[in-house]
Amino acid sequence: MLISPADTDFSQAAYWLVTRGDQLLLDANRQLPWMPADELFVSYYERRVISLGKLGGQPVFMVDISQVVLAPEQPVNYYSLMDIVKEFDWPLETTAYAAKAVQFQHFLQTHKFCGRCGKRMQAISWEIAMQCKPCQHRCYPKVHPCVIMAVVDGDRILLARSKRNKTGLYSILAGFVEPGETLEQAVAREVFEEVGVEVKNIRYFGSQPWPFPHQLMVGFVADYAGGKITIDEKEISQAAWYNLADLPATPGYYSIAGQIIESLIKKQALLGKA
């Protein structure tokens, strides 16, 4: 991340990530605005504009709506990052820029003051950081590692509904990694804490940055090793075994949970044909 220098040419067309909380301003076609700054804004403060890099060879800039005044002819269409991730068929690189913009702005808004001495912090111009000049304390955006895991037993998968989940979907289990433990230890601990069963043969599937707000989801598949489902009622409302050929509504492919579930369904289908 770079604070745009004074000689940045804003007269050329660029992609703009204009944030409003966890929302982004999109054009009439539900795409990122691509135009010169003077067409998008009536006024803007150049030193509040942040360069994120390039997309398709074109510059990408980020700015919070509080730092600009939109041109009156521009459509005011804001969409949440979750809507963009779940519903929009954007290229992965474009979605990644959208996630970065929301997370960076969240970081800037929540690190205005130093956690050590309380003085106002300033954005570093050459990297993603905020620094306190009086005490030299520097902060970087936090990434919180989470494990997300499918527990399988032959052609069955353990699915649960979180009390925090308002969608009604069933999904695989997940939880934050605690200090001092490996990812595999976190998998075993979270499964036991949430549903009371033990696992074995824990294997890595893949990872996904999940910007709600700063998580990195690390996916695993584990085999059932024993125990009866006993849910943690503070976290889980329901949990049960389901046949991979007959599942309830689960997350889509936009999430690593959906990707893991789909891969297991395909694997089981191939085994059935063998």
Rank of each mutant, 00 (worst) to 15 (best):
Leu2Lys: 10
Ser4Ile: 03
Pro5Lys: 08
Asp7His: 12
Thr8Arg: 08
Asp9Pro: 05
Asp9Glu: 05
Gln12Pro: 04
Ala14Phe: 06
Trp16Gly: 07
Trp16His: 11
Thr19Met: 00
Arg20Gln: 10
Gly21Ala: 11
Asp22Arg: 11
Leu24Thr: 02
Leu26Ala: 08
Asp27Asn: 15
Asn29Gly: 08
Arg30Gly: 08
Arg30Asn: 14
Arg30Lys: 09
Met35Asn: 11
Pro36Gln: 08
Leu40Trp: 14
Phe41Ser: 12
Val42Gln: 14
Ser43His: 14
Tyr44Phe: 15
Glu46Thr: 03
Ile50Ala: 07
Leu52Phe: 05
Leu52Asp: 01
Gly57Gln: 09
Gly57His: 02
Gly57Thr: 08
Gln58Leu: 07
Val60His: 02
Phe61Arg: 08
Phe61Ile: 05
Phe61Val: 03
Phe61His: 11
Phe61Ser: 04
Ile65Glu: 10
Ser66Ile: 14
Leu70Gly: 09
Pro75Trp: 10
Tyr79Trp: 14
Leu81Gln: 05
Asp83Ala: 14
Asp83His: 14
Ile84Glu: 03
Lys86Arg: 13
Thr95Trp: 00
Thr95Asn: 01
Thr95Leu: 10
Tyr97Gln: 00
Ala98Gly: 06
Ala99Trp: 01
Gln103His: 01
Phe107Asp: 00
Thr110Gly: 03
Cys114Ile: 03
Cys117Tyr: 05
Gly118Ser: 03
Gly118Arg: 01
Arg120Pro: 12
Met121Lys: 08
Ala123His: 02
Ser125Pro: 04
Ser125Tyr: 09
Glu127Trp: 01
Ile128Leu: 10
Ile128Tyr: 00
Ile128Pro: 03
Ala129Leu: 06
Cys132Ile: 00
Lys133Asp: 04
His137Pro: 00
Cys139Asn: 08
Val143Pro: 03
His144Met: 10
His144Asn: 13
Pro145Gln: 06
Cys146Tyr: 10
Cys146Lys: 02
Met149Val: 13
Met149Glu: 10
Gly154Thr: 08
Arg156Lys: 15
Ile157Phe: 13
Leu158Ser: 10
Ala160Ser: 15
Ser162Thr: 07
Arg164Asp: 14
Arg164Cys: 12
Lys166Ala: 14
Leu173Met: 15
Val177Asn: 04
Glu178Cys: 04
Glu181Gly: 04
Gln185Pro: 04
Ala186Arg: 01
Ala186Phe: 01
Ala188Arg: 07
Glu190Ala: 04
Val191Ile: 15
Glu193Gly: 11
Glu194Ala: 12
Glu194Thr: 15
Val195Asp: 12
Val199Cys: 11
Ser207Thr: 05
Ser207Ile: 02
Gln208Ser: 08
Gln208Ile: 02
Trp210Cys: 00
His214Gly: 03
His214Leu: 02
Leu216Asp: 00
Asp223Ile: 05
Gly226Gln: 04
Gly227Trp: 06
Thr230Phe: 06
Thr230Val: 15
Gln238Tyr: 11
Ala239Trp: 14
Tyr242Thr: 07
Asn243Cys: 11
Leu244Gly: 04
Ala249Trp: 08
Pro251Trp: 05
Tyr254Glu: 13
Ile256Gln: 06
Gly258Pro: 07
Ile260Asp: 10
Leu264Val: 06
Ala269Tyr: 07
Ala269Asp: 10
Leu270Pro: 00
Gly272Thr: 07
